[in-house]
Computed example of a mutant assay.
Amino acid sequence: MKMPVRTAPGLTDDAGAVAPRRRRRVGHAIAGGSALPDLTAQVSHDARESISQQIFRALRDAIYTGQLTPGTPLSEKEISGMFSVSRQPVREAFIKLVEAGVLQVLPQRGTLVKKISPREVREGRFIREAIEAAVVRKAAGYITDAQLRGLADNLRGQKAAARSNDTAAFLALDEAFHRGIAQAIDCTAAWDKIQDLKAQMDRVRYLSLPDVSPLDLLIRQHARILAALKAHDPADAEAAMRTHLREILVSLGPVAARNPAWFDADEPESVPLSA
């Protein structure tokens, strides 16, 4: 989960002008009488990322964590009002969210948070496994001692988050752990591609913690990956990563059964991607 960015006095719109920041209440009203969580602290005009990219990440994280539930309507006008920007960066963020598979545009109904597609979860996992298996196999041969220490520090942080039952902190560390492996082979493009693939997976992951997928189990899986990297064993590193990424196939069914309103009806693929 992306940590909040320090809020500045104003935000830039797509033309670069600074718009005045107004104090807003938590729970910005949206169409239909529901409330949009206050996400303004997620966006800052002095951040390296564009305003559009920051709005995309703020809305994406709110969808992942269930602050924006399936069926919630979103409009460019209301989101631009929340962030005090023009509609253009919001429109760009919406397009990216549709491409990521978490928003949909329906005739007569507008833009809504999309339900989770079990099939898309399986497809995303299948492609992610192919990429990360190759990445970790290569990393086993090239990872440095300093990078291994960084992953070990991260793993200790995961254990601390598990002890305090802080799933948000755990998920942030989990992201950093996998990103760190891609960075070990200087291939951040691989992680960028994975980010585009795993939107539906991340929503299931959040719903599965900690009851369906215990944090201690995931930590043990991470520890096995790290041990294989320390041993510079490509085959074991790949096997450990594949086992880890297939955990979501175990949790998908129970999570969908517990949260039926969040999921579309399943559409099994003709060739099973879970085998």
Score class of each variant (00 low, 15 high):
G180C: 06
G180H: 07
G180E: 05
I181A: 02
A182I: 06
A182H: 11
Q183A: 15
Q183Y: 10
A184R: 04
D186P: 10
D186V: 14
C187F: 08
C187S: 09
C187H: 09
T188D: 11
T188L: 11
A189S: 08
A189G: 02
A189T: 10
A190G: 02
W191G: 02
W191K: 07
D192K: 08
K193A: 15
I194F: 03
I194Y: 00
I194R: 02
Q195L: 08
Q195F: 05
D196K: 03
D196A: 14
L197S: 02
L197N: 01
L197F: 02
L197R: 00
K198T: 12
A199R: 00
Q200M: 12
M201A: 09
M201F: 07
M201H: 05
D202K: 00
D202A: 01
R203F: 01
R203M: 05
V204N: 00
V204Q: 00
V204G: 00
V204K: 00
R205H: 08
R205D: 09
R205V: 11
R205T: 13
Y206V: 10
Y206E: 03
Y206H: 07
Y206W: 12
L207T: 04
S208V: 09
S208P: 06
L209D: 06
L209Q: 10
P210S: 11
D211Y: 07
D211W: 08
V212I: 15
S213T: 14
S213D: 15
P214M: 07
P214G: 08
D216S: 15
D216G: 12
L217G: 10
I219V: 12
R220W: 13
R220E: 15
R220S: 14
Q221G: 03
Q221D: 13
Q221L: 08
H222T: 13
H222C: 11
H222L: 06
H222Y: 12
H222R: 06
A223H: 11
A223E: 15
R224C: 08
R224A: 15
R224T: 13
